[in-house]
Amino acid sequence: MGLLDKEFSEGNIVIAKVDDLFNWARLSSVWQLGFGLACCAIEMMATSAAHYDFDRFGVIPRNTPRQADAIIISGTVTLKMATRIKRLYEQMPDPKYIISMGSCANSGGPYWEHGYHVLKGVDRVIPVDVYVPGCPPRPEALFEGLLKLQEKIRNESMRKKTV
């Protein structure tokens, strides 16, 4: 329970805004789709493994898009793969988030000029929330990306936008 552990005696009522409660729950358990594309995926796996332990931020890889909250595009997106990524994204339930990891997913990276088979940035097919620069980014950089995403989720609101 961390933050609220042993703060209340039995039978107490906690009052919070729905936005704050939902956002706190969402940002504390960003389950990611277990999905890797290229060398960035190796860094992503290292991030999930024991030494860096992505799980301490609540990030657990899930094996189906139906149970995932976030997808980390970790590597070179070829045109052939882009159609599949779009489908995976569409299969995820809302609210869903995208972290674009590394130069290839951000902008095409080294394939920018002559990559006849590479999509020049995954944001051409799906809307990206956080871009993590690097080639490949170190696990610390991916942490920073996740913290930025958590910051974004924290400031979301369920209220209908008024004009």
Partner: peptide, 14 residues
């Protein structure tokens, strides 16, 4: 002499 297509399945290539 390969010429890259401008679009593939609606995705811009270059």
């Amino acid at each position: 002499d390969y010429k890259n297509p401008e679009f593939y399945l609606g995705m811009k290539v270059n």
